[in-house]
Structure formats: C-alpha cells, structure tokens
Design a binder for these strands. Sequence first.
DNA 1: TTCAACGTTTAATATGTGCTGAACAATCGC
DNA 2: GCGATTGTTCAGCACATATTAAACGTTGAA
Lengths: 154, 154
Amino acid sequence: MTNEQARLQFIERMGQQAANDGLTRSAGQIWAALLLSDEMMSSAELAELLQITKGSISTNVRTLETLHIVERRFKPGDRQDYYAIQENPYTALVEGQIRRFDNANKIVAEALDGVRGGSAQVKLTELARFYQLYQQSAVGLLAAMKADPEPGSS
Amino acid sequence: MTNEQARLQFIERMGQQAANDGLTRSAGQIWAALLLSDEMMSSAELAELLQITKGSISTNVRTLETLHIVERRFKPGDRQDYYAIQENPYTALVEGQIRRFDNANKIVAEALDGVRGGSAQVKLTELARFYQLYQQSAVGLLAAMKADPEPGSS
DNA sequence: TTCAACGTTTAATATGTGCTGAACAATCGC
DNA sequence: GCGATTGTTCAGCACATATTAAACGTTGAA
C-alpha cells in the first residue's frame, strides 16, 4: 500500500469512527487530515482534499474547536484561516467525558432521592456506584495524561 | 415531588441519556423501568407503562440483551416473556468499550505502518498513546468492578 | 382442529440530522 | 468606493433511523 493510500484510508476510517462517537463523518475526516498534515491547513485545502463544501468545513471546524481538538491559526498578511491540531487535544476529551459522568451522577442521585421501593434502591445504588467508579477512572486517566504530557518533539 | 413523579422523570431522563449514547430513547426507558421495578416485567407491562408498541419493545429489548444489560426470564406455566436487569450489567458495558478501543488502536497502528512524513508520525504516536492509556484505564476499571462485585443484597 | 395469546418481522411513516448551494457580512487591496 | 476573497449562516434536500401498524409464525389450551 502506498503512502497516499494509507493516508486516504486513515481519513476514511477516522470519519467512520467519528460518526459512531456522536461527531459527524466530516469532522472525523478533518481531524484525520490535520493529524496527517505537517503544516496547518486552510479551509480551502481541506475542502479540496476531502471534497466537502466550505460551509460544511466551517461548521465542523467550529465543533472541533469547541472540543479543543482543533485550533485556528493565522499567517501574518494572509486573510485565510488556518487550522491545526491543538497541543494536548486529548485531555480536553477526557474532561468532557468527566463532565458527562457528572450529569449522569446527578440524574441517578435525584432518582435515589425521590424513588422509594425495595430493589429499586439497590439497583439505583449499583448504578450510582458504577458511574462513580467510572468517573474516578477517568479522573485518574486525566492525571496520568497530564503527568506524562508526551512533549511533542518540536 | 411524589414517588410516581420521580419515577417518570428518571425514566424520561434515562431515555434522553440513552439517545445521546447511541441507543434509542425507548431502550433507555426500558432500562430505567426495569431498574425501578421490584419484579421482572412482561413486554405487555412495559408497553403499557412506556406507551410503546410491542414491536418496538421487542427490538429494543433485543439490543439490551446483546449488551448484556437485560435478560429474558420465564415463569413456569406462563407463556409470556419477562425481562429484568442482569446480575452485573455494567461489566459488560466496560468490556464493550475495551473492544472499541481495540478497534481504534488497530486503525492508528495501521496508519503508523503505512504513513510516512515528519510530524504525522509524531501526532499519530500521540494518538496511539492516548488510546492505549484510555484502554489501560478501562481495564483497570473492569478489574476494580470485578473485585468489588457489589453483591446485590438479595 | 380451532382459537387465542404472544413474540417477531417487515413495510410505511415520521422524525432528526448532515450536507449542499446560495445569500450574506466582513475584510483587504486597488 | 469598488471588487475580490474569505468565513458564516440558512433554507432546501437527501439520507439514515426509530417507531408504528399490520401480517406472520408459533405455541398452548379447549
């Protein structure tokens, strides 16, 4: 398999994977393209490479920005916006997951407050325990990632 | 808030949460209803409580079965199928997540094999490292859950 | 055998969502 | 100011998916 084929395949697979994780296929493809690129890329370049309209690039890049995966950069004297992968993109993802566990914990805690009944209490407590363990695990992961920042060569 | 209101609210919220996690709203509602119920429930009971047709109950219960969250039970001399939450429903969820990380790792590993180019190698290695750390975290969580099986009272 | 009850499957419908293409706003060079 | 370039927004369309309603197969009782 040529270098080019490997790149296109990776872009396609990241698109599929993103679509399974709540993002859009285009967002995953943009992510992959920026991972593979040595330089930051303009939206025109992304649109040409991925065969996506600039409108879709705009919206998808915005969601990747809010997820702190992609950041917008500028070249002096150049009106175009450029995009690149952020410095530590994955800590933000784990932090987002932790926030979601917070929400889940709230739901279960409120249910435990208001619901009476024998085995329901038991099973809700099990569910709450699961969410708490999962959250602790995510917090530990985040700490490990921050302790070992994988200092990006450059 | 009455006991009944708290139950309905929990069912509704679990439905929303499930819809955000790749399941359907109905699947989340069935899950919640079985969590709250002291006894196992028939599909007729579920359909009546959740206002869902028996067809939808059938398909959604099947997906919950394949996820090892719900199991099908029978009463002697009763032709109806009954459903209940499985014994340790959450270990199976973590195991599923671990399998998904396996897949992600494969994608990145193959990309690392085939892609040449300066910073791409670095960033792909970072991504691989992230997936590996995340997977280790999930494996640790699974071990913790199995070590502390939260022996369901009864 | 016949009928009733139950679970499954499937076609049709409804609903949500992503993408496109065009209109719009903003900015820079001339 | 004017035209060109760029990013954003939005209506319309296309597609995927969940739900329903009905048909079907199966099973058990009379």
